[in-house]
Amino acid sequence: MYLLKPLYFQLPVVTKHSLSHSILEKNSLNLATKSSKWHYCMQVHSHLDLSDYEVLTFFDTKYVKVIIIYVHTYVYYLLHALKIRRKALRNSKLIKQYLFKKETYREMAALLVKPRASEVLTAYLKQCNEPPWTSYFVKQADVVNDQFGKSHFNWPLDTGANYHILRTGCFPYLKYHCTKRPHQNLDIENLFFGLLKVLNLGIPTFFYGLSATALISHTEYVILKNKTIPIYFLYEEDKGSFH
């Protein structure tokens, strides 16, 4: 849109004794050509009666139409801006209503809080209907390592079954080897494996984890209440097999 130039013009102060029709016509044409978008023609009337030092004004009806167009355009864009603002306020209210719901915070907490590695272990053994044995990797970034320091230990389920767990950290994974066996005292084995990892500074397990990233060929998912955690295998297992 082009900006509207002044719609109210004042001609120089003139008297009827020095004003001629030619000068009036010339001034009128100069005023009409000031607008680059619209050209309006003045009709000069020869019967103008000007008193001494009377100011001549020009306000054509076509300019009134232009004013109406500009006012209409201004009102339109103003209403459009108010509509956008009203829509934004409505959306902000909906966002506030969503954020103040308890379910929202539970969903956010489920996304931010990682499950414990022990929860994934229990859920996976139950999900597979308590297989005779299994061996899997889980990423350290996906779980909370709540079994840190444990290398060989018993893991009972609420169904009465018991598993012997061989566990080690091998960046970027945690490795679990589970065998279904009766409960035994594994304190000595756990201490031995722990000392062995300390003596070798964890270097073998570190390279084991790096090599596993290239050897892993199968992925399964453990379904928890609020999350689904991927676990990784070197090959796809037959869950009912003893070997």
Rank of each mutant, 00 (worst) to 15 (best):
Y8V: 06
L11A: 08
V13L: 14
V13D: 07
V14D: 10
T15D: 14
T15S: 11
S18K: 05
S22R: 09
E25I: 10
L31M: 12
K34M: 12
S36D: 14
H39P: 09
M42E: 05
V44Q: 02
H45T: 13
S46H: 15
L48Q: 08
D49Y: 07
D49I: 11
D52E: 14
D52V: 09
V55G: 05
F58R: 13
K62D: 06
Y63T: 07
V64H: 15
I69Y: 09
Y70A: 11
Y70T: 14
Y74A: 15
Y77K: 06
L79K: 13
L79C: 14
H80P: 01
H80A: 11
A81L: 14
L82F: 11
A88Y: 11
L89A: 09
R90H: 15
S92E: 13
S92N: 12
I95N: 04
K96F: 02
Q97Y: 08
Q97A: 15
K102R: 04
T104H: 14
Y105C: 12
A109S: 15
L111A: 13
A117K: 04
A117E: 14
V120R: 00
L121Q: 02
L121N: 02
L121G: 02
T122C: 07
Y124C: 02
Q127L: 07
N129T: 10
E130L: 03
P132D: 03
W133I: 02
T134M: 02
T134S: 04
Y136N: 01
K139D: 01
K139E: 08
Q140T: 04
V143G: 00
Q147K: 08
L157V: 01
L166Q: 13
R167C: 13
K175D: 07
C178F: 03
C178E: 04
T179I: 08
T179C: 04
K180D: 05
E189N: 02
L195V: 03
L196G: 07
K197W: 04
N200C: 08
G209L: 04
T213Q: 06
L215T: 04
H218C: 09
L224Q: 02
I229S: 00
I229M: 00
I231E: 01
I231D: 01
E237M: 12
E237N: 08
H243L: 10
